[in-house]
Design a protein around this nucleic acid. Structure first.
Lengths: 192, 192
DNA sequence: CGATTTTTTGAATCATATCAACGTACGTGG
DNA sequence: CCACGTACGTTGATATGATTCAAAAAATCG
C-alpha cells in the first residue's frame, strides 16, 4: 500500500524509514469506481488526492451544461481543488474518475500537522506545487501563443498515455475546443 | 530599502529582526527604466525579482513577431521565468519594464542557500508559488470556460490598477485577443 | 447481439483576425 | 512652448476559422 506515493515522495525528498512510518499515519486509502465523484461542485474540498492507480479529471460546468476540463490526473499525479482545500470555500469544480482508481488521501488537518511536524513534507509540498505551476504555465503559454494544430501535437507528445486512455472529446474539452473541431484537426494533421 | 519586500514577507511568515537582517544579505536592489529588459529570450533567467515599485510584463514572441503576454507584475508581486531559473535552460520569455521600476533580486545561489539556512524562507516560497498557482488556475479556468465579455469584466474587477496603468493592447495580448477585438468588446460592454 | 457512447462528416452561422484608414493623445526636441 | 512624430485606440470591410446542429458511421460495453 502507498507504494507509488512513497516512491514519488522519495524521488523528491529522501525519507528515513521512521519518517515514512510517521507520514503513513496521516494517509487514508480510497477506491473510486469509474464515474464516481471525488468532489462535487458546491462541496468543500476536504482532501488532496495522490493517484496510485487509475485516471481522474477535474472540470467545471458552464451555464450551458458544458464540461470544461481543467486537469487530468493519472498514476503518480496529485489532484485536488487547492483553492477550496486551502480556503474552505465551496468548490466550483467537479472531480471524478475516468477509470476505476485507487487514491491516497491527505485531509486538511493531516496536511497542516505534517507541515508543522515533518519539514520534509513542506519541501515535498513546495516541489509538488512548483511542478504543477510550471506545467500549467506551459499549458497557458501554448493556449495563448501557439496555433491549435501545434498545441494538439504538443499535447500528444507530452501525454501519450492520456491520449491512449481518455476519450477524444475530453481532450477537446481540455484544449478548449468542441469535439467536432478536434476531430477535424486530427484529420488535417494525419493527412500530411 | 526593501520595505515592501519585507512587508510582504512578514504578512506571510513573521520574521524576527535577526532573520530579517540575515535575509537582507542575500538581496540585491536593481532599477529598471521603462522598456529595459530584465530577461531576454535565449538567456538563462538568473534571478527572481520582487517588484518594489513600477510595472513589468513577461511575454513570448511568436513566429509572426506578435507578443503574447504571460504575466503582468506590479508592486508587491514577484516576476521571473521560474522554469529557466530552476533548470538553467535558456528562457523562451522576455521580461521588461512597462514603467520605471525598482526591483529586489534574489539570484540562484542566494535562493538555494536561503532554502537551506532559513526555514521560513522555504515557507515563504511555498506560499508564494501556491498563490501564483491559484491565480493562474483562475485565469486558465476563465479562458477555457467563460465568454470573452465576462473574462474582460473579471479582469478589470480583479486588477483595476493594471487596467489604469497599462495600455489596452497589452491587456488584449494578455487575454489572447487582437487589440481591435478588445476595443470592440469594450464598446459592446459600455453600450449596455 | 443490442444498446450506448464516441467519432466523423456536412452545412449554416457566428466570432475573431486581418488589413487598412483615420483620429487622438503624448512626449520630445527644436 | 509649440510642432512634429510616434504610439495608441477606434472603426469598417473582408476573410478565416470555430461552433453549432443534425445525422450517420464506428467503436465499446454488458
Amino acid at each position: 500500500m502507498y507504494e507509488l506515493f512513497f516512491q514519488n515522495f522519495n524521488s523528491k525528498v529522501e525519507l528515513t524509514p521512521e519518517e515514512e512510518a510517521q507520514i503513513k499515519n496521516y494517509l487514508t486509502p480510497k477506491k473510486l469506481k469509474k464515474k464516481q465523484y471525488l468532489l462535487q461542485e458546491g462541496d468543500v474540498c476536504k482532501t488532496i488526492a495522490f493517484i496510485e492507480k487509475g485516471a481522474l479529471k477535474a472540470y467545471s460546468v458552464d451555464d450551458n451544461g458544458n464540461e470544461h476540463i481543467i486537469q487530468f490526473g493519472l498514476e503518480g499525479w496529485t489532484i485536488s481543488d487547492l483553492y477550496s482545500f486551502l480556503t474552505g470555500e465551496p468548490s466550483t469544480y467537479n472531480i471524478d474518475a475516468i477509470e476505476d482508481s485507487e487514491l491516497v488521501l491527505i485531509n486538511k488537518s493531516a496536511h497542516e500537522e505534517l507541515l508543522l511536524k515533518v519539514p520534509k513534507y513542506e519541501t515535498y509540498t513546495r516541489l509538488n506545487i512548483t511542478g504543477a505551476y510550471l506545467a500549467m504555465q506551459k499549458r497557458l503559454t501554448s493556449i495563448i501563443g501557439s496555433p491549435v494544430e501545434e498545441r494538439y501535437a504538443n499535447f500528444t507528445a507530452l501525454y501519450p498515455n492520456i491520449v491512449q486512455r481518455v476519450p477524444q472529446h475530453m481532450i477537446a474539452s481540455y484544449m478548449g475546443l468542441s469535439p467536432e473541431t478536434l476531430s477535424r484537426i486530427r484529420r488535417r494533421i494525419s493527412s500530411k
